[in-house]
Design a protein around this nucleic acid. Structure first.
Lengths: 233, 233
DNA sequence: TTAATAGTGTCTATCAGACACTATACT
DNA sequence: AGTATAGTGTCTGATAGACACTATTAA
């Protein structure tokens, strides 16, 4: 809806998480309008020029996460304005954000979490939202290669295999446990060993998030085997 | 300038090119207002939801490039809305684009091309535009690592050393000629040899742009030596 | 005891970076 | 002739991927 060169600006947020080894997205049911009954991403109309704050507010009100949380990653994705945007025929333009929220941190207040595969299989998302979700997932998959954001999706303390399963869920691949471990531990500041006060603890080694944000060198995902790859042993 | 949740939306375009071995950006002089006399990036107020088309129009009117040109790369960068955006205190929010235009294609109609170093040294850009330019340059430097966009900045046919100098200019580094050549030729579809009809031609081998868009594997820039690195032999 | 997973060690193919050398062009 | 640049060949260190093996845990 536009007139005289002035637009209604919406912020849409793709809130992604990993539950039960599957990548999921937070969606809300549309109550009214032509698309009533379909699902859509959390969003809000923007009332000031502070876009990041608007996105944080959406995240707070729908996912129950405070702005500065450890298990949280928020980043602007891109802005959709053409007719195939997430608000087509409805509002003017949409500034999209991606957020990664750990399962233990995510408290859906209005919507629910759909497994990503289910979203695509059932086609329940409103028009234009699939594209945003595609872009968001691809952005996150790419971020996993050269940043440490994956650690926002595990609860501390965590084991290397737990971290590995986050990568596997997001990339939809299986990774070699030995090589993954070596790679992670070889990157300074990715994870830090949990000081094992309890001398009697048994089981896998525990770690916490490190201070590094970027990975040098990058941990590249395996060459595209894509859909279904992780279903094979 | 906002009211009742409606915004004036501007498209800003960072038009980058390489001239005389230096990365440059197209800027226009500000004629009126508080910042009169300073320089700013080409821009236009958006009147419809087709953002990409709005950016293409800006590019057309200020850089003289038609939309679908071979020596052209255009991509949305991000959207600035907070007070430190390129239009702060002036308009509402700004959707920024980056464009790469080959020197032979770029025909400034309103502004002029500044060498990037001069922009920073002289601080001639209006408030909030430095940040946009930083983001644009970093985006392009990153794109050079895993795409073939560098070829948009050389005129066909070109030599491998010419292409190398584009990389060196954008990254502000010096690259090993032998290794660069091997890397480029080892990537299928990056460049294709010019069929040398003129059997008498002498000199370096000539190439044209290939069809590949992505580089596998990526050509990573050397570890940050950054500012002034290419001034050393 | 057996099966599954965590963790260590090691081998190999590949690639980036460095360097030596030859060929060509310009002065 | 001499210098600068284009291009080829080759060596070395780092890394990714694969695999073998041991240790630990849960059934």
């Amino acid at each position: 809806m536009t007139n005289a060169g002035r637009f209604t600006v919406t912020v849409d947020v793709a809130v992604l998480t990993v539950r039960q080894g599957r990548l999921g997205v937070l969606v809300e049911r549309i109550d009214s309008g032509a698309a009533a009954g379909a699902w859509e991403l959390p969003h809000a109309v923007v009332h000031g020029p502070a876009l990041d704050e608007a996105a944080a507010a959406v995240l707070q009100s729908t996912a129950g996460v405070a702005k500065a949380h450890d298990a949280l990653f928020v980043e602007q994705l891109r802005t959709y304005g053409d007719p195939s945007g997430p608000r087509r025929g409805d509002l003017g333009i949409s500034v999209a954000y991606v957020a990664l929220v750990g399962e233990s941190t995510l408290v859906p207040t209005k919507g629910r979490v759909f497994a990503l595969d289910d979203v695509y299989e059932t086609g329940v998302l409103a028009d234009g939202q699939d594209r945003l979700l595609d872009d968001a997932v691809e952005r996150v998959r790419s971020k996993f290669e050269y940043t440490t954001v994956a650690t926002t999706l595990v609860a501390e303390p965590f084991t290397i295999p737990e971290l590995r399963r986050v990568y596997e869920s997001v990339w939809s691949v299986t990774l070699h446990p030995a090589n993954f471990r070596r790679k992670v531990l070889a990157t300074p500041g990715f994870v830090v060993p949990e000081s094992d006060d309890d001398g009697e603890r048994r089981g896998p080694d525990l770690f916490r998030r490190g201070t590094a944000a970027l990975l040098h060198p990058a941990m590249l995902r395996p060459v595209e085997t894509e859909s279904g790859a992780r279903d094979s042993p």
